[in-house]
Amino acid sequence: MAEAVIKLTVPGELAYRDVVIRTTAAACRLVRAGATQSSTLAPLDLSDDFDAELVSAVSEIFNNIVIHGQDETGTRGAGSVIEFELRLSDLELEVVITDTGPAFDIDSVPSPELESLPEGGMGIHIARSCVDALDYTPGPPNRWRLTKRAARVAHRPSTQA
């Protein structure tokens, strides 16, 4: 299985959010175009929402790290960085995110009560819902692994959108 790896390191500040999102979106397009496959294979037929969902998930985790990773003074330590490793393969796109902020118990994050129209607490729910697997290993450093599978199948039914 061919695999390509993209590595990106950004300061732990919201200003770098756009760089992270654009890189993730570009990686999705590469997988869609079959960049990691042998030339004898057709490009992958990803679901319509593949790119939007992975971008959403990575975006929420990035926000979570930056916003909730701040110390009591509202800033992060000088030189704080977030590392991204995007692994593109024939089968999936895996994003491993490593940060040095405070660890937390991801299992203690409740699912939002969507019927009551919450104004917060949706980030982890969005991230979980948008990928096939979200693994978090508390650190330091903390390690997030988001896996989005690229099944070589037809589009998903719109009822699952």
């Binding site: 975006s59 129209l117 104004e119 917060g120 980030g123 969005i126």
Partner: peptide, 15 residues
């Protein structure tokens, strides 16, 4: 693009 912070603003407007 929208994220959970953006959704929160629209929900606040709605409510």
């Amino acid at each position: 693009l929208i994220d959970s912070s953006g959704v929160a603003v629209l929900v606040a407007l709605y409510k």
